[in-house]
Nucleic acid binder design. Structure first.
Length: 511
RNA sequence: GGCGCUAUGGUGCAACGGUUAGCACGUAGCCCUUUCAAGGCUAAAAUGCGGGUUCGAUUCCCGCUAGCGCUACCA
């Protein structure tokens, strides 16, 4: 891995003489550990991943941790974990920019010697305030465009107690252009681009002294890592000309840029905490299936062209292309995400769904090892299959579906109130229980017939008994069709539960 | 303030000069029905505004408006 190679040298080696790597794109995802992985970042990661897989390329993971103040190293693991959950696996890295500082300093020195950059002695406050350079005797130049240039650019440094910053000398006059794979050709006049900082200044004791800024570290790293396509959020599009200038100053042809639109909250402002859950981890915790989340995310700002939208990951990979990326910001629609989840819950081959359910049950301490055995597995699969169309989120298997996996459940008061009203119920259920107990066979119809016959002879609607029995054996008003439920739960347990319910029923009618 | 980007139903997308403007989510209703889902059917709902170009504009151009982004020694 060409980790610490000289950026200039590796740049000059392009295009690679190795034919094997000639048409293999190299892309990267470069989060900064200032928070969890949010859905915007996840979508960017996903697009990079889809592109890399589709084009048979390489995805590199790079941690952009050059901001000493906001950087929180303990967050890195969470980001990696979220990416793994999402199924976005990377081929190289993670690299940490904080461990590559020398590379940026070297590049900055190169730019300094070539005259492409200069030392700036202005304090950040003065520069920003338009009072650039020196003790106010240096005239700042604030152009009509609102771009500040200080005297340092012309080699009129004033000394101070600052270690100078290194600024890029934007070539004037001139224009900078680049081609964006999504937004098309872009061009900006250089006099609109300020002389941005490459390496930070500092007071003598400042930790951030000599640390690179974003513009510097991305470009140097993207060159060093031989990135061919920069796929990132559209919030970076305005900064791209600066980076293009840097590439040129470093003697390197810029990569292809592809800016993808932003993800907004329902109020059309940038998605943030106040919109509720924005971290990938929170969706995992809520019980979304990663593939459903991926499918949903992929369609935010990208379309395969036609009306298709239920696309499994392999299909996303097959169809992904930068051409399909939209230019308009997209609103994150949770309702649609939930719909995708229910779709996957229902349509996934059962064997793919089972591991997720197993994990959920383990987390709720409902998992039993016997379900891993071949006979137990068959029952488990059947039960999950029965429940799946009614489940919205994974934890529903353990909460709403609890009675299917353990005898330790209670009656939902609302269900009881609704379906245990008739006074004859105790008597009827007792009869039913006796009949069920006598059944030689235990299957859907064997359960169905005696119940309906009993209802008819008692002159009540079958629904009355059906609903009451459902509450008796699963404690809920909402459950799969009764006779399927009875089959899955098994004769002995059904009988036991019915007897328990009859007792409960008697207790309630007494009071 | 400056610079830029964007603009199809409430939401995500399709239609890349000619369609009754399509699909999906959501919403409403109906069907199915044993609760709740699922499923099926139906309905309401969109080309921001104003100018051009063209035989013909959702589509191309200009202006306006709105939203968003950038304008940091944050990324």
């Amino acid at each position: 891995m060409p980790l610490m190679s000289d950026p200039i040298m590796s740049a000059n080696n392009r295009p690679s003489p190795l034919s094997a790597s000639r048409n293999r794109p190299r892309v990267r995802f470069a989060p900064s550990p200032t928070g969890y992985l949010h859905v915007g970042g996840a979508r960017t990661a996903l697009f990079n991943w889809l592109f890399a897989r589709r084009e048979n390329g390489t995805l590199i993971l790079r941690i952009e941790d050059t901001d000493a103040d906001r950087n929180r190293p303990e967050l890195v693991d969470g980001i990696l974990e979220s990416m793994r959950w999402l199924g976005v696996n990377w081929d190289e890295g993670p690299y940490f920019q904080s461990q590559r500082i020398e590379l940026y300093r070297t590049a900055a020195q190169t730019l300094l010697s070539s005259g492409a950059a200069y030392l700036c002695y202005c304090s950040p406050e003065k520069y920003a305030g338009g009072d650039a350079a020196g003790e106010s005797d240096e005239p700042e130049e604030k152009s009509v465009r609102g771009v500040t240039r200080c005297g340092c650019r012309e080699g009129k440094p004033s000394s101070g107690d600052y270690k100078p910053a290194i600024r890029f000398r934007v070539p004037l006059p001139g224009t900078t252009q680049f081609e964006d794979a999504v937004f098309g050709p872009r061009e900006v006049s250089n006099d609109e681009i300020e002389d941005f900082v490459l390496l930070r200044s500092s007071k003598s004791d400042d930790e951030s002294s000599g640390l690179p800024t974003y513009q510097m570290s991305v470009v140097v790293d993207d060159i060093d890592m031989r990135i061919t396509h920069v796929i990132r959020g559209a919030d970076h599009i305005s900064n791209t000309p600066k980076q293009v200038l840097l590439y040129r100053a470093l003697g390197v042809t810029p990569p292809t840029f592809a800016h993808v639109p932003l993800i907004l909250g329902p109020d059309r402002t940038r998605l943030s905490k106040r919109h509720g859950a924005t971290s990938v981890g929170s969706y995992r915790d809520e019980g979304f299936l990663p593939e459903a989340f991926r499918n949903f995310l992929a369609l935010l700002g990208w379309s395969p062209g036609g009306d298709a939208q239920f696309l499994r990951t392999s299909e996303l990979v097959e169809r992904f292309s930068l051409e399909g990326v939209s230019r308009t910001n997209a609103v994150f629609d949770r309702a649609k995400l939930e719909w995708f989840n229910t779709q996957y819950l229902q349509k996934l081959p059962i064997e793919e769904l089972l591991p997720h359910v197993e994990e959920t049950l383990r987390r709720h301490e409902l998992w039993r090892g016997e379900w891993a055995s071949s006979t137990g597995h068959e029952w488990f699969a059947r039960t999950v299959d029965l429940l799946r169309s009614r489940v919205r989120l994974l934890p529903d298997f353990a909460t709403w579906g609890r009675a299917f996996f353990t005898d330790d459940f209670s009656y939902d008061p609302a269900a009881r109130d609704k379906f245990w009203k008739d006074e004859r119920l105790g008597e009827l259920l007792a009869k039913l229980t006796d009949q069920l107990e006598q059944l030689p066979d235990w299957n859907h119809d064997a359960c169905d017939h005696p119940l309906r016959a009993l209802a008819e002879s008692a002159g009540v609607k079958a629904g009355l008994l059906i609903n009451a029995t459902r509450v008796a054996i699963v404690g809920q008003a909402v459950a799969p069709p009764l006779f399927d439920t009875m089959v899955v739960i098994g004769k002995d347990r059904v009988v036991t539960r019915l007897r328990r319910a009859i007792a409960a029923l008697a207790a309630t009618t007494r009071t």
